[in-house]
Simulated scan of single mutants.
Amino acid sequence: MTGKTHIIGGVAASLAFAQITNYEPIILLGAGAVGALIPDICHGGSKIGRTFPSLSKIINAVFGHRTFTHSLLFLAMAAFLFFTFLPNEALAAGLLVGMGSHLLLDMATKNGIKLLFPFKMRVRFPVTTKTGGTAEHMIFALLSLLSVYFGYSAFDFVY
């Protein structure tokens, strides 16, 4: 999936999460968008990889792409760090929701992810899409609509 699809996925997921929590929706929204980019730190050409090129190169050299940073182990470690060191619980939760949305979206690609890293098994959905293909554009559109729907509910717009 492309960066824009991951961002809108993080936005949609965080706004959906806002429906079932008492966290501040605007914090979840921002954190979800950022969190959705974090797993791709292992790829130098990604939005976050270009922002932190040295860190990206190190992580890629040690683990490769779509391995450790796309795993439940990484998600659990991030949860521990976020809830221990971040000053706001909504920020931590939003980052994790965004990261989780990233993993789900990458499971919809042909290559899948190593969700159970360090085990080498790749996990993907039975039906997959090509990054940047027509199906991804349709997923982007659907996630955009879901973001509007959940955003409307989360922010209690009154007309």
Rank of each mutant, 00 (worst) to 15 (best):
F157H: 00
F74Q: 09
G98W: 01
Q19P: 10
F117Q: 10
M107E: 10
G10W: 05
I59P: 12
G44Q: 14
F125R: 04
S101Q: 03
S46H: 09
N88D: 15
L15Y: 11
A154F: 08
I8Y: 03
F150Q: 02
R66V: 11
S153K: 14
S147G: 05
I139E: 02
A16T: 15
H102N: 12
L86C: 07
A93Y: 11
I20P: 13
F17A: 15
L91R: 05
I27S: 01
L96F: 08
H6T: 00
L104A: 03
N88P: 07
L143T: 13
S71R: 08
G133Q: 08
F83K: 09
K4A: 08
T128I: 01
A141E: 07
G45H: 14
F83A: 11
G35Y: 07
G45I: 09
M99Y: 07
I20E: 10
A108W: 08
S144K: 13
L104D: 03
L105A: 03
P87Q: 12
Y159S: 03
N60S: 15
F68S: 05
L15S: 10
G94A: 00
F119W: 14
P39M: 04
D156Y: 07
A61Q: 15
P87E: 11
G151R: 08
L103G: 04
S147C: 06
A78R: 01
P87I: 06
V123H: 06
G35I: 02
M107F: 11
F125P: 01
S147Y: 05
M107H: 10
E24M: 13
G32K: 04
M107L: 10
L116C: 04
G64T: 14
G49A: 11
G45F: 07
F155S: 10
G112K: 14
A12E: 11
L146K: 09
L91C: 05
H43T: 07
F82P: 04
H43P: 01
G9Q: 11
L116I: 08
R50H: 14
D156P: 00
A78M: 05
G133I: 05
G49W: 05
T84Y: 12
F17V: 15
G98P: 05
M107C: 13
I41W: 02
T129Y: 12
F83W: 09
S101E: 05
F117G: 12
